[in-house]
């Protein structure tokens, strides 16, 4: 079976909500019915057939050919299969996904991977603000899975993260890992101001000393760490990094002591 392919015909006239186009929501839906699904979010009321040319049939292998910052909620809540976007996406790509694999070969807008619970989301370009973070009013951000940003992430990446792993490879904006509940955030390429601001637990792993930390972080020396080796090896084995990030005995700062204080910021000596 060939991948179910949605080829973008032209720039959408309005923001579109692509959350109905996931493997599980399309299972058993005929192609002509797929083309009738409404995805527009304004008075235009665009349908799938107005925006995309649809081809192929494998519901577990979905491809969006062509990207636009108006494509919101790509693969929202997906549980299985694979979704690939050849191009950029708008807000909330891969939000609350639980399984499967989402690849964005371009940039993603704000709230990519927001509240993600499982699966693998990889963004080859940059991600907007609030990567993996909760929407307003939600208690926790990402709570499982693997989120990789090959480019740069905006501010508040991994905000209120609870579980899982986020790796940002070309630097992040300010307040990365703010209010983290637990989980692991990797930032190579430099984090902005005050990573880990108000984090309770969790690990923020950096490739260099942070340029600033909240004053309620305390230095914990640089004891040998098997955990550092394990995570270094994992990041290389997963193809996320090419060389070790932390080394055998990284520097450790503990915090944020303005809250629970059981989190850590690690970076190599």
């Amino acid at each position: 079976m060939k991948a179910l392919t949605f080829t973008l015909v032209a720039e959408p006239p309005e923001r579109v909500d692509l959350s109905p186009l996931t493997p599980e929501r399309l299972a058993g839906v005929e192609r002509r019915d797929i083309e009738k699904i409404q995805i527009g979010t304004s008075k235009h009321g665009s349908k799938v057939g107005d925006i995309f040319r649809v081809a192929g049939s494998d519901r577990l292998d979905i491809v969006f050919e062509g990207g636009s910052a108006r494509l919101d909620k790509v693969a929202e809540g997906m549980r299985e299969g694979s979704v690939r976007v050849v191009g950029s996406t708008g807000a909330q790509a891969g939000r609350t996904m639980r399984g499967g694999k989402l690849t964005i070969e371009g940039n993603a807008g704000p709230h990519a991977g927001s509240g993600m619970r499982g699966g693998r989301l990889e963004i080859t370009g940059n991600a907007g603000d609030h990567l993996g973070a909760p929407l307003a009013g939600e208690l926790a951000g990402m709570s499982g899975g693997l989120l990789i940003v090959r480019g740069r992430a905006g501010t508040f990446a991994a905000d209120r993260m609870r579980r899982g792993l986020i790796a940002v490879l070309k630097g992040s904006g300010d307040h990365a890992g703010s209010r983290m509940i637990a989980g692991t955030l990797v930032v190579a390429g430099g984090a902005g101001e005050m990573p880990g601001y108000l984090m309770r637990r969790g690990s923020i792993l950096l490739d260099r000393a942070p340029k600033s930390l909240s004053p309620s972080f305390v230095e914990c020396g640089a004891p040998d760490s098997v955990f550092a080796t394990i995570i270094d090896r994992y990041l290389i084995a997963e193809g996320i990094l090419k060389r070790p990030l932390l080394g055998k005995a990284p520097h450790r700062y503990g915090g944020d002591n303005a809250v629970l204080g059981m989190g850590e910021v690690l970076f190599p000596r």
Binding site: A182, T184, S203, D224, S225, V226, I230, M262
Partner: peptide, 24 residues
Amino acid sequence: GWQISKKIGGRHFWRIPVMDGEFL
């Protein structure tokens, strides 16, 4: 209470603070 749980690549580890660093 100072132990840290880490799930890495489907494996679950505990990091327990000890006097020469951590027991993983």
